[in-house]
Design a protein around this nucleic acid. Structure first.
Lengths: 228, 228
DNA sequence: CAACGTAATTTTTAATTCATAATTAAGTCA
DNA sequence: TGACTTAATTATGAATTAAAAATTACGTTG
């Protein structure tokens, strides 16, 4: 009997919590256009909820930087600006470096094997020029390392910032050269992880993040130049 | 006229935003006891607001880890556990290290002078054995370095985590030996900041954070041993 | 004709109300 | 007497409603 109650409790989730996830997805997929106003009424109809839980969710998204609340003006989907990218990537770099350091201390052999598998799949996606698959597996690798660090605070901090940058992932300037460099960086990441070489893994992850930053910024700059 | 409207606009703030700040203060000062239930009704009466904005604020605090929401059970003030300290301090260490690195690149001479002043005041507080003043000035120094890093994302990430640890600041085991060590670490922090030696400042700040972690954990352990 | 001010409409914000879930207390049965 | 069940009370969660603020449109005046 107690078990029944428990399993129900697991599946049960508060409405606002559900909404946070749904809205995150909408924003990351750019279904809600960057810079646009969040259409409260429309979303309420779409999700079949009232404005109270929706607004509760928007407050959380605002503290994560996905929307900006203007008092008495409503919520606006934030844009990925060059300034933001220049700010967020260094922080993400520091956090990923730490995750690499800690992962080397705590990762199991089985987990390393899993990363090795993911890496092989990613290489395959690279050879097939399947960018969507590449991005997806890439993210799984970073997440596997993050989880191996055994630090929940680190995990959530990283994820919140990653989420903001994921809005820009389709902006990543994956030229042939950049893509090749990224794959080579990942080779070294795997290598240092297998060797459980914390300091070098940390350094490589930070450098990797810095390369990503440069790539995204260049793209945003060229895009800005086209428009303006 | 535009200026008048503007200055008014600056002071205007939404109710829920105001509440986030007020509740943070209550929790940090332990006016809301760790582990206890957040008394919605009482707080509503106390602040003279309805439950809607209060609950919006609680959602934000929950995403910052200051309260924990249990579906259909309400909000509970989180405790500072040893596990949390062991998680948060390393992350804070990585972020402060980055802040030191960036500060060395961007800090002005005037800002360095300001830190120097704060440092002198802190030494004075140390000599007078004024722990409250010491903590307060200490925090100002770390914040000054953080602001000199010119990275808003870093600032808010650090602040959110610092807030969680500030609940434990009165738990810090400031024995004579530990206090002296901390002051010496700060001497080196100032020294490397003046020299604008990023790598060494980063290393020192991380070490400083590690010392703090050890001190807090030891205290929590001895406290746990007393009770249990 | 343009610019400023006023009024009306729309939108946001917060309070109230209603429904649902949890907890506690009381009563009954073993 | 103790444990379990059921009912009642209390509190939480979400919708609705009301009040406050902003934007827009219109009219008037210079």
């Amino acid at each position: 009997m107690a078990q029944t109650t428990n399993s129900q409790a697991i599946t049960r989730t508060s409405l606002h919590h559900e909404l946070v996830g749904r809205l995150q997805t909408l924003i990351i997929n750019a279904d809600l256009e960057p810079g646009s106003k969040v259409p409260e009424k429309l979303l309420c109809d779409q999700f079949g909820v009232s404005r109270t839980p929706l607004r509760e969710a928007l407050k959380v998204l605002a503290s994560d930087g996905l929307v900006r609340l203007e008092p008495n003006r409503g919520a606006w989907v934030t844009r990925v600006t060059i300034e933001e990218v220049e700010e967020v990537f260094p922080v993400l770099g520091a956090l990923e470096a730490l995750s690499g350091e800690l992962a080397c201390q705590n990762i199991t052999d089985a987990e390393i094997d899993a990363v090795r598998d993911l890496h092989a799949q990613m290489i395959q996606s690279y050879k097939e020029r399947d960018l969507d698959a590449y991005f997806s597996i890439n993210q799984k690798i970073h997440r596997a390392i993050l989880l191996a660090a055994r630090n929940g605070t680190l995990t959530s901090s990283c994820q919140a910032l990653s989420l903001r940058m994921q809005r820009a992932r389709y902006l990543a300037n994956m030229t042939q050269g950049r893509w090749q460099d990224a794959v080579q960086e990942h080779e070294r990441i795997l290598e240092f992880l297998i060797a459980r070489d914390g300091p070098n893994l940390a350094r490589t992850l930070m450098g990797h993040m810095n390369s990503k930053r440069l790539s995204v910024v260049r793209w945003l700059q060229s895009e800005g130049a086209m428009k303006g």
